[in-house]
């Protein structure tokens, strides 16, 4: 783990003296997380925000923008697949691990519930 190795970036050196690379994150609505969309070259965070607005949010909706100096980002190496590896069974923590519930409910003449159903019911009512 090291800093300066952001997902689409290289090292931390400025591409122009007095300027820095700022990574740009757009939030498209209050319920969405900020999403990385690219980077700008700017002399300060203030400028980065001002130009990022039009370079990355001129179409579609946006409710918030982040700019982060690239050298302040710590990232995992992109070519280290092992960092994220899941070798053994983890279906016990996923819906797909319980597909037999539906069949078993049938014995009791009842139907399995889904999360979507509950959400529709509770929020829609």
């Amino acid at each position: 783990m090291r800093s300066g190795g952001v997902a689409n970036g290289a090292g931390a050196a400025a591409s122009r003296p007095g300027h820095e690379v700022y990574e740009v994150f757009v939030q498209s609505s209050a319920l969405e997380p900020h999403t990385h969309v690219g980077s700008v070259l700017a002399p300060s965070a203030e400028w980065a925000l001002q130009v990022a607005r039009e370079n990355f949010a001129r179409r579609g909706t946006a409710v918030n923008l982040w700019v982060v100096r690239r050298r302040d980002i710590a990232a995992t190496p992109a070519d280290d697949g092992d960092f994220f590896v899941r070798e053994f069974d983890r279906t016990y923590r996923e819906v797909s691990g319980y597909s037999d519930n539906a069949r078993r409910w049938k014995r009791f003449k009842a139907r399995a519930m889904t999360m979507d159903e509950v959400m529709d019911d509770v929020r829609g009512g």
Partner: peptide, 20 residues
Amino acid sequence: GQLLLRVAEDLAEPLGRTRD
């Protein structure tokens, strides 16, 4: 051009070359 330049700049950086 801006998006692509940023990608090119990152590739050029280890070669010591900047946007300018």
